[in-house]
Write a protein that binds this DNA or RNA. Structure first.
Lengths: 139, 139
DNA sequence: GTACGTGCAAATATTTTGCAGCAGT
DNA sequence: ACTGCTGCAAAATATTTGCACGTAC
């Protein structure tokens, strides 16, 4: 007998976590999400947040961004898109430019394997930091 | 008075760590490097390995790859190049294809900031795993 | 000689997990 | 009712750091 595919239940916790993540354009940490969810569900645990973020990622409802810092950031937009990381203030911004999809096929041929998708991150200084307008400098 | 730029000493430890990393085409973890260095310098500490990897990265002698897993991998090749991550066996492979450098300028214009460099990672199945030749399946 | 670097060990930071009871389907 | 899911707390994982001594320059 083949193993049945895992059935995911839409629990209250899972729904609120997804709603919180969908409601922001930022790319928050697990802990920030935890604090947000706690405002409507004070007894939720951080472990539950992490477990749900993993499930939501597996279901391809969200993305996990694990570069640019020592911890993961989460992105409520599951559609493939690029990101920019500011080396000065650490902000992670969405880049709304067309994907460079033709590279996937080239890489697959080069390797003799299969390419499912790719990610691209740009590093530099965001507009505020570049112009000396950063929040830190206004203190 | 302006602060003098930090002077980095080339200690025995730093040199061996760099040599170990330069000698492999793999992308090892800090712990793997630690074990390698211990073979010639048994009393080195893991903290020293981490400190030196950070300095070498700042000096742009090596790269830190902090995506695709919960820990960092280190790359002795400091030249910009793309990587492929196998979702099945976890291997990280270099991709020898030209960089898509023209995007940096586009992103800078879009943001009104400055772009220093970008990274690109492809995800999929490597040749061995794709053809069912993976080491795991041979057990 | 100076101050950066090291070994050691403890601390930190982030994420995962065992378990007993709860709840979605 | 059947399993997946939760809260809690402890554990696991990866990396950083304080300190006294060592060493490259």
């Amino acid at each position: 007998m083949g193993k049945l595919p895992q059935i995911h239940r839409m629990t209250k916790q899972r729904k609120i976590i997804l709603d919180v993540l969908r409601a922001t354009k930022e790319h928050p940490t697990a802990d920030w999400i935890y604090e947000q969810v706690r405002q409507t569900m004070p007894r939720i645990s951080l472990g539950t947040v992490y477990r749900n973020l993993r499930v939501l990622k597996e279901m391809q409802d969200i993305q996990e961004l694990n570069y640019g810092s020592t911890y993961s950031l989460y992105d409520g937009n599951a559609e493939p898109h690029y990101h920019f990381v500011c080396k000065e203030c650490g902000a992670v911004l969405d880049i709304d430019l067309p994907l460079y999809s033709s590279y996937d096929q080239k890489v697959a041929e080069l390797l003799g394997g299969q390419v499912d998708f790719h990610r691209m991150e740009f590093y530099g200084s965001c507009a505020d930091c570049f112009s000396g307008n950063s929040k830190l400098m206004q203190i």
